[in-house]
Design a protein around this nucleic acid. Structure first.
Length: 278
DNA sequence: AGTGCGACCTGATCGC
DNA sequence: TGCGATCAGGTCGCAC
């Protein structure tokens, strides 16, 4: 599922490939995915040049001229693909933004098997209102002190806290599982029960797994593709995610799986002992 | 207020 | 073989 490293990989692909292009058309076969509506969006952005692509949490922000912004969320199965006009159709294409720069034409195709993703036109004010509700970016704003503060204020299970976008931005199920394994912390441990050493290890582990994800251009164990339609490789380096029944790389004991808040949760029962699973 | 859970979706896979 | 059930999970909105 696109989490911070996947979304950031796509963002940087888009930024260096499509900045400077002008929007010449928008088409959509799944109206509910475009807000406020396809017609209103097209009316507002036709002819505008893309100045760049930013990211906040798992949102991609397309910056346009005239203080217009497109927010794009890929949810679980969304893809943003840079294609030439004559390229063959992509499966599950929902929205196509046609682009032009001089005499070069491109398409930005938003494909999404499950239609959970969305593309939304917002003003600068709306953008600011939306972004203010996200917690700090783990690779930029978050420091150890802030992290400890967040943990000590929550008695929820640590894995849920890591995935709560209002507390920390961009971490989803895969990276939460991997970070907790690296830090040797059981996913069900109440956040406020972690001591300083645990918090410190977890802080480092988050940075490690996110950077690893970026290095491998994301995890494609499921439907994720980068903006050129290429799979990431991080799934080849998972330590616990999806590895239930396989041996832990540290101790050899089998990785276990259980459901925490309706999310598949993977851990080593021997290495991650801070609390037994329910 | 803080927490938990169903709804939103569709394709792949599992079990009988 | 076929068919129904289950699983995948980010976020919103609602209930408690």
């Amino acid at each position: 599922m696109p989490e911070l490293p996947e979304v950031e990989t796509i963002r940087s692909d888009l930024d260096r490939t499509l900045s400077g292009y002008k929007i010449i058309d928008v088409s959509c076969n799944t109206p509910k995915m475009v807000k406020p509506s396809v017609a209103k969006l097209f009316e507002a952005i036709k002819g505008l040049e893309i100045s760049g692509f930013k990211r906040r949490a798992k949102l991609i922000i397309v910056e346009l001229e005239k203080d217009q912004f497109l927010l794009i969320h890929l949810k679980m199965t969304g893809r943003l693909l840079i294609r030439d006009v004559e390229d063959e159709a992509d499966q599950w294409t929902r929205v196509v933004i046609s682009l032009e720069k001089g005499n070069i034409r491109k398409e930005l195709r938003f494909a999404d098997q499950r239609k959970f993703g969305f593309l939304r036109l917002v003003t600068r004010q709306e953008l600011e209102d939306i972004l203010k509700d996200f917690g700090p970016e783990p690779l930029h704003d978050l420091n150890l002190k802030t992290f400890q503060k967040i943990l000590s204020s929550k008695r929820q299970e640590i894995k849920k806290v890591l995935m709560d976008q209002a507390l920390i931005s961009g971490i989803g199920n895969i990276y939460a599982n991997e970070a907790l394994f690296l830090a040797k912390i059981h996913p069900g441990t109440p956040a406020n029960r972690l001591n300083q050493e645990n918090a410190n290890k977890l802080f480092q582990a988050i940075e490690t797994v996110l950077k690893r994800g970026l290095k491998y251009r994301g995890a494609s164990d499921n439907s994720y593709l980068d903006a050129f339609g290429i799979k990431g490789k991080y799934q080849e380096h998972f330590l616990v995610y999806g590895r239930q029944g396989n041996p832990c790389i540290n101790c050899g004991k089998n990785i276990e799986r259980y459901s925490l808040g309706d999310r598949g949760t993977f851990y080593c029962p021997s290495c991650q002992v801070s609390r037994l699973h329910p």
